[in-house]
Measured scan of single mutants.
Amino acid sequence: CHSECLGNCSQPDDPTKCVACRNFYLDGRCVETCPPPYYHFQDWRCVNFSFCQDLHHKCKNSRRQGCHQYVIHNNKCIPECPSGYTMNSSNLLCTPCLGPCPKVCHLLEGEKTIDSVTSAQELRGCTVINGSLIINIRGGNNLAAELEANLGLIEEISGYLKIRRSYALVSLSFFRKLRLIRGETLEIGNYSFYALDNQNLRQLWDWSKHNLTITQGKLFFHYNPKLCLSEIHKMEEVSGTKGRQERNDIALKTNGDQASCENELLKFSYIRTSFDKILLRWEPYWPPDFRDLLGFMLFYKEAPYQNVTEFDGQDACGSNSWTVVDIDPPLRSNDPKSQNHPGWLMRGLKPWTQYAIFVKTLVTFSDERRTYGAKSDIIYVQTDATNPSVPLDPISVSNSSSQIILKWKPPSDPNGNITHYLVFWERQAEDSELFELDYCLKGLKLPSRTWSPPFESEDSQKHNQSEYEDSAGECCSCPKTDSQILKELEESSFRKTFEDYLHNVVFVPRKT
């Protein structure tokens, strides 16, 4: 048989008469490798580009789960590009990614509803959504962080984005990388972005840091009482949809009607710091009717980097990364020049730590249904340095008659930039024990000054392991946590139920 035959053949030295091919099969003959313009397919066939392209389009058009959109890589027609490569849609070739590779997620039936953290986790790592997304989240724990972890990498949506009755959302900033909504599939009414009845939605994105392009379709905003109209108009300008909307697409009466839409800028007039305090004062603000001013709200939190936005980490279910302080308005003076500047002394802060701070007014709604208010920009203030805590785990070892090696770990709280350490030492008198000992005694162990690591005695271990207080009263049991108490109650309830079950099964009433 021919060298490319495997198993047997019907005619000697003829690659077209093989029972099976050793390498690849091409047009009725066995070959060692697939010549151009053919590609290896499933490690035994040679196919042309049209064959591989037909497989790709067949799966793409069917949208069946589990099928493969075949691509070409290293002269092979394979189910998908290997790690580190992405497909070129024009020629199906796998090309190296520039940075992290995109991950295209194809949605069944063309859309997916995100109504819980669990459903959001199914899209973790996706960068391109081939379909439409509907966000409908009523509640949950730590929602802002969970949504950002699972949806934060999405850069492109081919269909539309719909935010509907998501009472738990305060902001859409968890879509931190969303840059493009194509609108290839539109919501009824030709809408590519749809926001309806979101009672706590206050911000779409921080438009000073976020760009969003909507290729096709219109915007729809109705019944978002805490979303200011200025935020919607800003989205029109940034996304390129200005002029597409009709009169009733953006409701003037049901958007922002319960919001404090600040239209003035508060400026800080005085800032002073110490290692654990920050004193702030800002310019006074009074609405047209000074009785509408209820006070100020001061927001602050630790910020290692200057990239904080107002609604980071917030949701309507209680999660809030900001510390909020309510401040009463100052006494009002008739003389504008003698107006008191409101302020606040922030206490209990960490030394040498940068804080993000902003302040906003708290006002009631005027009778004319106009909203007044003022808010400052987010500023960054760093507390002063102070003395560091003591170095940890000092170790001293003498390696000769004239040297001592000293080692330690950095302090747990540096409280500033540590530039150097101060080492103090003092000579001590020799131990009298060394002169009084009889060095001729056998088995004498000389006193040693070398360091030995501390260890816990058996008594201390027994005390720590004991669940009861000892007789001397030195140790006591740790208080039980809520989960331990709940577990004990469940076990007790189970024992009672099981005992009742045994009584009912074992003891049967005697027939009379």
Rank of each mutant, 00 (worst) to 15 (best):
N211P: 09
D384Q: 02
G159C: 01
T361P: 01
P391D: 02
P288S: 11
L107G: 05
K162M: 03
F221L: 07
P288L: 09
F290Q: 02
S173C: 09
S401M: 07
E368W: 12
S400G: 07
A356Y: 00
T118E: 12
K226I: 05
R202L: 06
T361Q: 14
G159N: 03
R281W: 00
Q354H: 06
L180D: 12
G240S: 09
F268L: 02
Q382K: 12
P351A: 12
L219R: 02
R247N: 04
V397S: 14
G140D: 09
L212N: 01
R369E: 11
K234V: 12
K350S: 11
V381T: 03
D249R: 04
G343L: 01
K226D: 09
L204K: 01
A145W: 03
G125R: 11
A144S: 14
E368I: 09
S396K: 11
L266A: 02
Q121H: 14
G240P: 02
D115P: 03
S158R: 10
P342D: 10
P391H: 01
R165F: 15
T118F: 11
T185L: 07
Y191T: 09
L227R: 00
F175T: 01
D367L: 11
Y305A: 14
D312F: 10
F221C: 14
L161N: 00
A303R: 06
N190R: 09
G152I: 01
G140M: 02
I357T: 13
T273A: 09
K112P: 01
L151Y: 01
A145I: 03
Y160D: 01
E237I: 12
A144L: 12
R369Q: 08
H222S: 03
F268H: 01
I379P: 00
T241C: 14
A303M: 05
E246V: 10
L123S: 02
N263D: 04
R176D: 02
P330F: 12
L392M: 15
K337L: 08
I135L: 04
I378E: 01
E122K: 02
C228Q: 10
V397L: 06
D377Q: 06
K162S: 10
I232F: 01
E231S: 14
E237L: 13
S402T: 14
L201V: 05
P330N: 11
A195Y: 00
A149Y: 05
C317Q: 03
I188F: 10
D393T: 11
K409Q: 08
A149P: 03
S338G: 09
I232L: 14
F299L: 14
S376L: 00
F311H: 10
T371I: 14
L293A: 09
C126V: 01
T127P: 03
V128M: 08
S400H: 13
S116P: 01
F193R: 00
S192D: 01
F358Q: 07
T118S: 05
S366R: 13
E236M: 06
I154C: 05
T323L: 13
V238I: 13
S398R: 10
F175C: 03
A303F: 15
T364L: 01
A303W: 05
L331N: 14
S230T: 07
C228A: 06
G125P: 00
H233M: 01
V325K: 03
V324C: 08
F311C: 04
L169C: 15
M235I: 13
I181K: 00
V397H: 11
A168P: 15
A149K: 14
C105R: 02
N263I: 05
T361N: 07
R370M: 03
N399M: 15
N255M: 08
G189P: 13
Y160C: 15
W352L: 03
P394D: 05
W205A: 02
F299I: 08
K218Q: 04
L133I: 02
K242E: 15
G295T: 04
Y372S: 06
Q199E: 15
A195E: 00
T309S: 15
C261R: 06
A251M: 11
V325S: 13
K350G: 03
A356T: 04
L201C: 05
S398G: 14
D206V: 08
P284E: 15
W286F: 05
N211W: 12
C126L: 00
S239A: 10
L280G: 00
K253C: 06
L186Q: 07
E302K: 09
P336L: 06
L147A: 04
T323P: 01
L266M: 07
G131Y: 02
A120V: 04
D292S: 08
R332N: 03
N248R: 14
A374W: 04
L219E: 02
S400F: 03
Q339G: 14
I404S: 06
C105T: 00
S166G: 12
P411N: 01
M297F: 01
H210V: 11
D312N: 07
Q245R: 09
I357R: 00
D249Y: 14
A303C: 02
A149S: 06
R202Y: 12
E283F: 08
V359M: 09
P388F: 01
T213Q: 13
L161R: 00
S192T: 01
V128T: 09
Y380R: 07
H106A: 03
Y194K: 12
H106E: 11
H210W: 08
L143Q: 15
H106W: 09
L227V: 11
E302S: 12
P329W: 04
N200W: 02
E237M: 10
N334R: 14
K337D: 15
S230W: 04
F174G: 02
C228E: 09
E237S: 04
P304D: 08
W207L: 07
W344T: 04
H106F: 08
D206T: 05
F174L: 10
S116K: 15
V170I: 11
W282E: 00
S173Y: 11
I129S: 01
T364Q: 01
R202P: 01
L219T: 03
L108Q: 07
I181M: 04
S171Q: 14
L169T: 09
K301Y: 05
T118W: 05
K226R: 07
L147M: 10
D328A: 11
L151W: 02
T273C: 13
L147W: 01
E122S: 14
N307K: 05
S274C: 05
Y194L: 05
E236W: 15
D312H: 09
A259H: 15
T254Y: 08
L107C: 14
Q382E: 10
K267T: 11
D206M: 08
Q382W: 10
N399Y: 10
T241Q: 13
G159T: 01
F220R: 15
C105N: 01
A259F: 06
L362Y: 12
E156G: 04
L345Y: 15
L345A: 02
M346D: 00
I134L: 13
E187T: 09
E302D: 10
T371Q: 13
N211Q: 14
A168M: 02
G343P: 01
F311P: 10
S400P: 04
G343R: 04
A251F: 07
M346W: 02
I181Y: 00
L212D: 01
N307I: 15
W207R: 02
R347S: 07
I114M: 07
A259N: 02
Q258S: 14
T254D: 02
E184W: 12
Q258C: 02
L108K: 10
T371D: 05
L143R: 07
E302P: 09
W352F: 07
N136V: 09
H341Y: 08
A144P: 08
E246A: 04
E246M: 13
G295R: 02
S158A: 13
